[in-house]
Design a protein around this nucleic acid. Structure first.
Lengths: 269, 269
DNA sequence: TCAAAAGTATCGCTATGCAATACCTTCGTA
DNA sequence: TACGAAGGTATTGCATAGCGATACTTTTGA
């Protein structure tokens, strides 16, 4: 049984801190750390790997894995060679998506957008320094990872990220830039703070943001921000195509109005 | 802020049992019970509702919710009126999908299938008495719920379910039928054991299964099973369309060969 | 065939997190 | 604008849940 590599452009969620406050239940944190051990792998994990990957001893890992297994959140690999995440996870995926008003409201808008644009259309939601894809309507040919709900990308170097930053104050933008681990994901990833700020200004003027294979070779993407009633950017709508079929100018001329219109439909209540 | 109703055709996961084995960490089970409280609601929950919905007192719910919140698995509703599932859940969704070889292998096949068929194409995986949707490629017009990863449907009355049952022994089929909570989801849901068995035999003969608005009014669906190397059915590929556009016969003639071919591509390694 | 790795089981001690209770805040109604 | 109820937050002493060390069984691959 073959396993797919992990996407090299994935972003780690802000794993932040657990201090010692009296209400914090560390057993729960451990469970989540065990589940998060799978973020870093492309294949099933053994108990010891889980223990190592989540920074606990074998004993602790054993108990946690045992429990999660009983509950269906972890299961044995198809040919019993290691542990993988369990299907019960998807039940919570559904709840998340259903109960997120943005996702449910965006759904018909995205569908409509996808009908006009014949390219990939995504909805992403902001989580700290990253955008997490919550809905993906793929086009004809796609890579597997471009179909994955839950995939995340950095804010600092993506069309969606810059669309989001365009609606933040300069100070906030600087903060995002400063805290981001800015590394070149592709040769064309923009990592220089001033260059990023320039792209953000550009996005503010245009009303949409553009990125050229900064995350994925050969990919062109434009995005528009989705705002809360108060004006805080919550996420973005993306349209992504291939540079083998489009040049930047045509892509923008053709799709920017549609992307803007879609975001507009979501931003006025 | 408006919230969508929960889908009336959802299926509860087998919540089974936790006995008192020494390795079982009940704090983890509680956390998952809290998260599962959202399965039954269409709107954000208050602390007390969570407590009630997961069968624990306010104190316990408080600690668990607090912890899950710190970790990002629960968050406050957009306008701070209650709790909803948190975005960190999607990180695990991604891991589940990535690490499930069936999903990754099926992905290109589904995409290809969707290209030929211009209708909705789904991949579902078996979990006990239900099928859980793991990948969904929607057609032009869709209901919101038909786009949801993690949505689940019963085995006993769906095209996918019967495609799966077609590859089980008669005894196993009887077992599924017996344990299923067979209720009419629509007027056309088939609930009679003998009628179900007849449909399963039909699926065995045809190599695919058919269902006519047994779960959703106006929906026609055919499905083929995906098998493990050993021959156990693991899930199904579905093609779903609208009865306003298709009659059963044409739908089958047109799509059955394609569905069969797609499943075939996955079943031979 | 054998050693190493993976998984399973046991057990006594104490830190963990339980549950009761009380306090603070927000919201809708009068 | 005052009031009551519901929602959310904080504290604390005690019992037990679950920690972690260790040892045993099974599987794997060299």
């Amino acid at each position: 049984m073959r396993y797919v590599q992990r996407a090299e452009y994935g972003v780690r969620p802000a794993t932040s801190v657990d201090e010692s406050d009296p209400l914090f239940v560390q057993a729960i944190a451990r469970a989540m750390r065990v589940l998060s051990a799978f973020h870093d792998t492309g294949k099933p994990l053994t108990l010891n790997e889980i223990a190592a990957g989540s920074g606990m001893d074998k004993s602790a890992a054993q108990r946690v894995v045992h429990t999660l297994r009983q509950l269906g959140y972890v299961q044995r690999d198809a040919d019993d060679r290691g542990y993988v995440p369990g299907i019960r996870i998807l039940d919570h995926t559904r709840d998340y998506l259903r109960l997120n008003p943005l996702v449910s409201r965006a759904s018909p808008v995205l569908l409509e957008l996808r009908r006009n644009v014949r390219e990939r259309v995504d909805l992403s939601l902001r989580d700290g320094l990253r955008l997490v894809y919550a809905a993906r309507l793929q086009s004809k040919r796609e890579t597997f990872f471009a179909t994955l709900v839950g995939q995340s990308v950095p804010i600092y170097c993506t069309s969606g990220g810059r669309a989001v930053m365009a609606h933040m104050s300069d100070a906030e933008v600087d903060d995002v830039i400063a805290r981001s681990d800015r590394r070149k994901i592709t040769p064309r990833t923009i990592t220089d703070p001033d260059a990023i700020r320039a792209k953000v200004r550009e996005a503010r003027q245009n009303g949409y943001a553009l990125a050229l294979e900064e995350v994925l070779q050969g990919e062109i993407a434009i995005a528009t921000a989705i705002l809360s009633p108060g004006g805080t950017p919550l996420g973005a709508i993306h349209i992504a195509g291939s540079l083998s079929e489009w040049d930047a100018e045509t892509f923008c001329r053709r799709f920017a109005p549609l992307a803007t219109e879609a975001a507009g439909a979501l931003n006025r209540f």
